[in-house]
Amino acid sequence: MDQYEINKTASAEWPLWEIFIRSKQGLDHKHVGSLHAADEQMAIENARDVYTRRMEGVSIWVVESKFIHASNPGDAAALYDPANDKAYRHPTFYNLPDELKHM
């Protein structure tokens, strides 16, 4: 009986949503936090109240958290270190004469 009650409450929790806000027309949507809501419409309405009380946004994206897949922090070295020794991808790598203009 107790077990049943616990399961009932656990499954009754509204899903978690990740909230992304575009602060100004022309800028990217940026992750601001998360919240619980029964569906996407409620998630947007709640996000409006929780994350844009001071005109922080002009557009809201909501994504159910279970659909976010993240890289593993343990893989950071394998993923990002190889970019470390490729300084030639940056313009400052190239030593060119000072007389050269418009480049």
């Binding site: 656990a10 998360s34 919240l35 929780v50």
Partner: peptide, 26 residues
């Protein structure tokens, strides 16, 4: 009213920060 609404918002930001550590809202 605005102040009390802010406090509700603070509670919600913080609950979701705690949830990232693996505890559920319920």
């Amino acid at each position: 009213l605005a102040k009390v609404q802010d406090e509700a918002g603070h509670g919600l930001y913080l609950y979701s920060a705690a949830e990232t550590l693996g505890i559920s809202r319920d």
